[in-house]
Simulated scan of single mutants.
Amino acid sequence: MIEIHNIHKSFNGKVVLDGISGVFQTGKTNLLLGASGTGKSVLLKCIVGLIKPDLGSVTFDGTYFTNNKLDIRQEIRRKIGMLFQGSALFDSMNVEENVEFPLMMLTDMSRQERMDRVNFCLQRVGLEGTNKKMPAELSGGMKKRVGIARAIAPNCTYLFCDEPNSGLDPLTALKIDRLIKEITEEYNITTIVVTHDMNSVIEIGDNIMFLYEGKKLWEGTSNNILDSDVPELNEFIFANRLMRDAKKVEEEEERQKTP
């Protein structure tokens, strides 16, 4: 479990995060939802320690991370896996080498142990046999899967995904969403996903935090997000015609249930 307490962050006098608190549960896909420029990625970077908040704190399973001793922060970082927006694979390394990289940096595994782990992770994301392929030979969806394999290779406890569906077609995006959720539940990981994709929200939104202009305006699940009474959230959700139609269907079903 990850907890954030009263997180504030400004850049050059502009407030980006304004007192955000919340809990991200273990074994669940926790979504940071909002339009571009609402502070989602900045909050994610504050949580993982890439940016230091001006005020507030972050705890990982009860251990304070912000402003703690360097060795404690480093120990927590060893348990973190990251899936970057553009996958961020090393172009000069093949698939096998990309997945092996964090094992070389963070563990004392032997070469054979590393290869066993690499092959296991590639098999888990459905990419067995692709070890020697270069990133340039992979589709967008395959790159995301390699990124996931690399993130979970060191047996991460916490998984952070920044816009994992960016640039993917709807079917591939759905497969990546489901893979992230499966891995989260299977390994009991605390997963935080930054997204603005309502398809992801409906598909894997176990816990959702909606940000608007640096503030947390709503928190809930995919089961009750369509019933929100927050105007900013509703404007965001129902900007899509498909979502407006879905809302109408839901309202009609509720009317038919009423005697």
Rank of each mutant, 00 (worst) to 15 (best):
P231D: 14
E186N: 04
K181L: 04
E203L: 01
I72M: 09
M109W: 12
A173N: 08
S222V: 00
M209P: 00
E128C: 00
S92T: 13
K52I: 02
I202C: 00
S200W: 05
L159K: 03
G214C: 05
N67D: 15
Y212P: 03
T38M: 12
C156S: 15
D227M: 01
L44F: 09
P170Y: 09
N6F: 02
G220M: 06
F120A: 09
F160C: 02
Q256T: 00
N223W: 01
N94F: 02
G56V: 02
T157L: 01
V95N: 12
T26G: 09
G147A: 11
M134E: 08
L70R: 15
R111C: 02
Q256A: 01
G39Q: 12
F24Q: 11
G62D: 12
N98K: 07
A149E: 08
V58W: 06
T190G: 07
Y212W: 13
T63R: 12
E203D: 14
L174Q: 15
E251L: 13
P53N: 09
L179P: 10
E113P: 06
L168D: 14
G37L: 04
R124H: 07
N234K: 10
A246M: 14
D18R: 06
G39I: 07
I152P: 11
E113H: 02
I72C: 04
F120N: 07
T130N: 08
V194S: 13
F90E: 09
G27Y: 10
T191D: 06
R77W: 04
K257Y: 08
S139N: 08
T221W: 07
V193R: 05
S21N: 12
G22C: 05
N234R: 11
T184W: 08
